[in-house]
Design a protein around this nucleic acid. Structure first.
Length: 262
DNA sequence: CCGAAGACCTGCTGGC
DNA sequence: TGCCAGCAGGTCTTCG
């Protein structure tokens, strides 16, 4: 469930439960794809206190006492659960001084790792934090198809396949439009759509889970009404033209051929 | 620089 | 009803 709004919801939901907790022990389960270095995690996480839980783009950073960090990425199907029962998909289990923290992930594309220093990543500015002028300037300086650019985490961090399609729909931009060809005005529309759509998704996820510690954001996630994503053949909500599906950068891409002509 | 293709995985669904 | 290709919210590497 993991694009920026879902990760933000997880952090807001699970963060308050974790803050101040002490990690007593860690269990890592084979085949060690999610946690590829179980020894480091088992050696350095127990005994430390969780100071802070933060989000950067789609990454969750858990700040531990003594300068260590947990880096968590949910991949495609990862879930971070406070409390609850282990499942056949539980890959990492943290025993806390009060309660449990589970990382579940059927497809195992996610990652749970321990780092001594804060990990450096080839990551652009966070999509909710980037300033408009910077976003617009960098977009127009690149020559790349808009769908691929929005998905490029080194350009801006946090946008995934669903929100990329929705952002382009709301700003009237064709997924294959070249970023350098957008007018400044149009680029600002893309920025505005990005902030509005991600912000609404965060509000929706956050409001529906409030203080519910063992939720992961799913509840908020499914309340969101997509206008083009996975609506191939359905009439566009604006003009009625059937939504089209193409492949762009190996990702399923949905758009309205009439409303998105830029 | 760019884009395409394949790899990494399991699980659900849509069409026959 | 049952089966299987195709597809899935992400990223990484290799190759042309």
């Amino acid at each position: 469930l993991p694009e920026l709004p879902e990760v933000e919801t997880v952090v807001r939901t699970v963060g308050p439960f974790l803050r101040g907790r002490r990690i007593e022990s860690v269990e890592v389960y084979p085949p060690f794809l999610v946690c590829r270095d179980p020894d480091t995690l088992r050696q350095h996480a127990p005994g430390r206190t969780i100071l802070e839980v933060r989000r950067n783009a789609k990454h969750i950073l858990v700040e531990l006492s003594g300068g260590w960090h947990l880096g968590i990425h949910l991949g495609m199907t990862g879930r971070l659960l406070a409390g609850g029962q282990t499942t056949p998909h539980t890959r990492v289990l943290f025993v806390l001084d009060r309660g449990l923290l589970l990382y579940d992930d059927p497809r195992m594309f996610g990652r749970v790792e321990a780092w001594e220093a804060e990990p450096l990543r080839r990551l652009g500015p966070d999509a909710m934090a980037v300033l408009e002028d910077e976003f617009v300037a960098r977009m127009r300086a690149r020559r790349k198809r808009m769908k691929s650019l929005l998905l490029d985490q080194a350009f801006v961090g946090g946008i995934g396949n669903i929100y990329a399609d929705e952002i382009l729909y709301w700003s009237g931009v064709h997924p294959r439009a070249l970023s350098c060809r957008l007018s400044e005005k149009r680029a600002r529309l893309v920025y505005g759509a990005m902030k509005r759509i991600l912000g609404e998704a965060i509000d929706s996820g956050g409001s529906s889970v409030s203080d519910y510690v063992d939720a992961t954001g799913q509840t908020g996630w499914f309340q969101i009404q997509h206008r083009v994503y996975r609506r191939t053949g359905e009439p566009c909500g604006t003009c009625g033209t059937p939504i089209r599906r193409i492949l762009e950068g190996q990702r399923g891409t949905h758009y309205c051929p009439k409303c998105q002509r830029v």
